[in-house]
């Protein structure tokens, strides 16, 4: 369903700051996979997502999604099939626009169905309210509230809803609960699992929480120096513990795991 074939990306090539952020990275993702990705700071995890989402073009290699070669497609065309959440809850929403206006925009990913000059109808509003109710945050009664006045957790929940209101073929989550307080983080994580399993969304999730990495999803990747150095799935994944990950990292990379935000447990 998603294939990366020998994808490379070097930042500032030919300078002293040259950085090989992706190094001939290949990855095959099956439909319905929920993959967690861990790795130390600067390992290239976010860069991997940027390459998949189209924020820059890969220097080398091909990216194929659902049989379509998307290597050279711009962000806005890929986003029709790819939903994405960032660590920063401010990134996914327009602060000066209302909740319903943000949702209406997200709904444009559905394509052809809505005319460019149509306005938000009462039927749209009913649909938005229905969807917001699932978040269980009372947002369904605040359709005309500017998003900028919501809390970080509420904004991230809304962003999650916007990314999935039209179920994407692929969902990219980049430490999307890391900036939230523990309560909100737990809530967003539960919502994520609920939506992903309901819509059977194929999902890649970067996390610094090793406990989460082994307990959620069906496959775990570990990245280092722009490569995937560990890929655990199936039976082995279900027995995997956070301690295993740290041990396996030391064996493979020859040094201890360092991530300034690393968490062993919840």
């Amino acid at each position: 369903m998603l294939d990366l074939i020998e994808v490379s990306k070097t930042f500032e090539p030919g300078t002293v700051n040259e950085k090989k952020a992706l190094d001939r990275l290949s990855l095959h993702v099956d439909k319905g996979d929920f993959i967690t990705i861990v790795g130390s700071n600067g390992a290239g995890k976010t860069t991997l997502f940027n390459a998949i989402a189209g924020n820059f073009l890969a220097d080398r290699g091909r990216i194929v999604l659902n049989g379509q070669d998307i290597t050279f497609l711009p962000v806005h065309q890929r986003s029709r099939q790819i939903g994405r959440l960032f660590q920063d809850p401010l990134k996914g929403t327009a602060p000066h626009m209302t909740i319903e206006e943000n949702l209406a925009l997200a709904y444009r990913r559905a394509g052809g169905k809505t005319s460019l000059f149509s306005r938000i109808s009462s039927q749209d509003r009913r649909q938005f309210r229905e969807a917001l109710k699932e978040l269980d945050m009372g947002l369904e009664n605040r359709l005309t509230t500017p998003v900028g006045t919501l809390s970080g957790g509420q904004r991230q929940a809304l962003t999650l809803l916007m990314a999935t209101i039209v179920p994407p073929a692929l969902l990219l989550l980049d430490e999307h609960t890391a900036a939230l307080d523990p309560g909100a983080a737990e809530k967003i994580m539960a919502l994520t699992e609920q939506i992903v399993s309901r819509d059977k969304v194929t999902c890649l999730m970067i996390t610094h929480n090793l406990q989460q990495a082994v307990s959620i999803g069906n496959r775990t990747l570990m990245m280092e120096n722009g490569r995937i150095i560990l890929d655990i799935s199936g039976e082995e994944h279900s027995r995997l513990t956070a301690e295993d990950l740290i041990r396996r990292f030391r064996e493979t990379a020859g040094r201890s795991f360092d991530n300034d935000r690393i968490l062993l447990s919840d």
């Binding site: 711009p74 806005h76 994405r84 990134k91 990913r109």
Partner: peptide
């Protein structure tokens, strides 16, 4: 307001 979000909604900024 937020150009990133526009591209993520499959609109060409």
């Amino acid at each position: 307001d937020n150009p990133d979000m526009v591209a993520a909604s499959s609109i060409d900024p």
